[in-house]
């Protein structure tokens, strides 16, 4: 770990301003991902701005009947909130599927969105990685990476986004609220927050330098069934091989791309009267395997069809 300086932010806008003004600054909240990466020198911040104690830990009703979840609400608190559990059960299920209880107690909603891929090659500094070292090449491509992306990947990066929560947020059509260094606030649809890798996999979100996520806003809950399914190698504390969030007529897929994947093709097909299998095929037509991850395409199709057909849950 490299030496770094530390400050505890007094306000969200102050944190954003400090982040923009301090070279090498990073926000710190729960630290469940950032500190691991710092120990491996994958993250080498010169300065940490602790936003974990900002007054962003409330969950409140919005005038239109939705919820605003503060960015430093813990994953545990968000999952167990009565309003979330009753109106957005897909979010509770995704959060609970997302980590061990100890991690959920520390991890925050904002941090969950900003966590970085668990690609084993990203985690091994001895291997080339375009995320760590732009232009170095992608060693996961052609490597031992059964979890690789099947949608939206590029020659530069085949990693997937690790968040379960974000998949539920995508199906709920959530948005994030941010504050920029100049104090300006804006609202970003969840689907526009994370970026596909393209040629620049090191640029992971549409946030500007210093811009801080302050809240997640949920629109009123959709009509209809909500469900979260996660396929994984062990029963807990494992990233998904595939996951799926269903909320009303909206469908999002996880562990398939470098962002939570809103299945707009499948949604459109279903709206036009397609069968679940046809809808799954429509979404997965563009899916590509890169070796050991090819099974994920079939796996995704089977789970999507089963979920849309209303197969029994566990």
């Amino acid at each position: 770990m490299r030496p770094f300086t530390y400050e505890r932010a007094e306000s969200a806008s102050g944190a954003a301003k400090s982040a923009a003004e301090t070279p090498g600054a990073r926000f710190l909240a729960g630290g469940t991902n950032l500190l691991d990466l710092m120990k491996l020198e994958i993250e080498r911040p010169a300065h940490l701005i602790d936003v974990g104690r900002l007054p962003l830990a409330r969950i409140e009703e919005t005038p239109d009947g939705g919820l605003r979840i503060g960015a430093v609400v813990s994953n545990s608190a968000a999952a167990s909130d009565r309003r979330v559990r009753t109106r957005y059960p897909v979010l509770t299920h995704a959060l609970v599927a997302g980590a061990s209880p100890q991690l959920r107690n520390k991890a925050t909603v904002g941090g969950n969105l900003m966590q970085r891929t668990r690609c084993a090659y990203f985690y091994d500094p001895a291997k080339p990685c375009n995320k760590r070292d732009p232009g170095a090449g992608c060693s996961a491509l052609g490597g031992d990476a059964r979890g690789n992306a099947i949608l939206g990947a590029s020659e530069a990066c085949v990693a997937v986004h690790p968040s379960d929560m974000a998949v539920a947020l995508a199906a709920l059509d959530a948005a994030v609220e941010t504050v920029a260094p100049a104090g300006r606030t804006r609202t970003i649809p969840i689907d526009a927050l994370h970026r596909l890798p393209g040629e620049t996999p090191h640029v992971e979100t549409s946030l500007e330098p210093g811009e801080l996520v302050t809240a997640v806003v949920l629109p009123p809950p959709p009509e209809g069934r909500q469900e979260y399914r996660k396929v994984r190698d062990r029963a807990s504390y494992a990233g998904g091989l595939f996951s799926l969030a269903l909320a009303g007529g909206r469908l999002a897929l996880g562990a398939v791309a470098l962002k939570p994947w809103r299945a707009t093709q499948a949604e459109a097909a279903l709206a036009a009267g397609a069968t679940p299998a046809e809808a799954a095929d429509a979404e997965l037509a563009a899916a590509r395997g890169t070796g050991r991850n090819a099974f994920k395409i079939t796996l995704a199709r089977r789970v999507v069809v089963d979920a849309l057909e209303g197969g029994p849950t566990r």
């Binding site: 061990s100 668990r118 084993a120 985690y123 091994d124 001895a126 291997k127 060693s139 052609g142 490597g143 031992d144 190698d233 062990r234 029963a235 807990s236 504390y237 494992a238 990233g239």
Partner: peptide, 30 residues
């Protein structure tokens, strides 16, 4: 039977899983 495996990447000669987040002994829930 179900979860534990490590693999050598034959391009590098290294074991791919190098932490307990990617190498899977059973957890309580298993």
């Amino acid at each position: 039977a179900l979860t534990e495996t490590n693999r050598v990447d034959p391009r590098y000669g290294s074991l791919t899983s190098q932490d307990l987040g990617s190498y899977f002994p059973p957890v309580h829930a298993d």
